[in-house]
């Protein structure tokens, strides 16, 4: 059982602050590190993996510092986002070399086991340069798993995987979590995190924006006010009926559209079509105007 702890960690590059005063603990189980692109997820993972020194604060794995401590890699595996694998090797050679570099007592057996876990044994004797993106990804997962680490860090592991591979990796991570391992993966896609993990750390602009149970965060996200921009055959009539709806908190009539502020996303979207039909209004477009993930995250930061 291992825990990863960040205490008041900041990291800056020159004048740019990449991670700002983050304190968090990752316990055994699967945790998702969620945030928009450029939020500092990779920096956080690299800090945990001892590949970056914190400018301030401490990063520890089981109480031992992550920075300048090669010994901790006995218990830690990292799958980076960058698709960097030596293409001149076969998957078997690559994973076997990893096992040997870990000085495992039986490197062949460990390599065989790791390749079987990611279901790559059929292609293991082909050069990595001939692999698809998903296969390379799985090769790197196998190399990170070969020494049976208690902490596994994965940076955007589902990028470039097809749905079946995605499902398979999710099952694998769950299985490893059930064995008591500490697994942290980063993602900028909400649904991935939803499917995989109950615990979430949300990072926005280098700060820890939310932390805890996924359902709680999801609720925050769905009950927040939503903006819609609607065009129809009769904007004025539509505005009149909409303002009578409890799920609508504000309506403004503009020259060629109705701007609606909905306080409850689900109720509003269900009611809208029904209302339009009753009033014989033709809806020509319904555009959610703030659905980008950045908006969702910035809403979280504000609460």
């Amino acid at each position: 059982m291992s825990t990863v702890e960040l205490t008041a960690v900041s990291r800056w590059y020159g004048n740019v602050v990449a991670v700002n005063d983050v304190t968090l603990t990752i316990s055994p189980g699967v945790t998702g590190l969620l945030g928009p692109n450029g939020a500092g997820k990779t920096t956080v993972l690299h800090l945990m993996a001892g590949l970056l020194a914190p400018s301030q604060g401490t990063v520890t794995i089981d109480g031992k510092p992550a920075w300048r401590n090669p010994e901790m890699y006995r218990d830690l595996g990292l799958v980076t986002e960058r698709e960097s694998v030596p293409g001149f090797l076969t998957a078997w050679e690559f994973v076997l070399a990893s096992a040997k570099l870990h000085k495992l007592p039986n490197p062949e057996e460990a390599a065989r086991r790791a390749l079987a876990i990611v279901e790559l044994h059929d292609a293991q004797d082909r050069r990595i340069s001939t692999y698809s993106k998903g296969m390379r990804q799985r090769t790197r997962v196998a190399a990170a798993l070969v020494h049976d680490p208690t902490v596994l860090l994965l940076d955007e592991p589902f990028n470039g995987m097809d749905p079946r591979q995605r499902m398979h990796l999710m099952q694998l991570l769950h299985k490893m979590a059930d064995e008591g391992r500490t697994i942290l993966f980063s993602s900028h896609i909400l649904e991935e995190v939803e499917q995989l993990s109950g615990t979430v750390q949300v990072i926005v602009a280098g700060r820890l924006a939310a932390s805890g149970d996924y359902r709680h965060i999801r609720r925050l996200m769905t009950t927040r006010p939503h903006q819609f921009s609607i065009t129809s055959s009769n904007d004025r009539l539509l505005a009149t009926v909409l303002i009578g709806q409890p799920s609508v908190s504000g309506v403004s009539l503009e020259r060629d559209a109705v701007q609606v502020q909905a306080s409850d996303y689900g109720t509003f979207t269900r009611a809208l079509a029904k209302l339009a039909r009753e009033q014989d209004i033709r809806l020509t477009s319904v555009l959610p105007s703030d659905e980008s993930l950045e908006m969702v995250f910035s809403y979280l930061v504000a609460t």
Binding site: L51, R82, K103
Partner: peptide
């Protein structure tokens, strides 16, 4: 090319 991470994340004396 970034493959240095594979070497760095091993418990080897530098």
């Amino acid at each position: 090319d970034g493959t240095i991470t594979h070497l760095l994340t091993k418990p080897l004396p530098r």
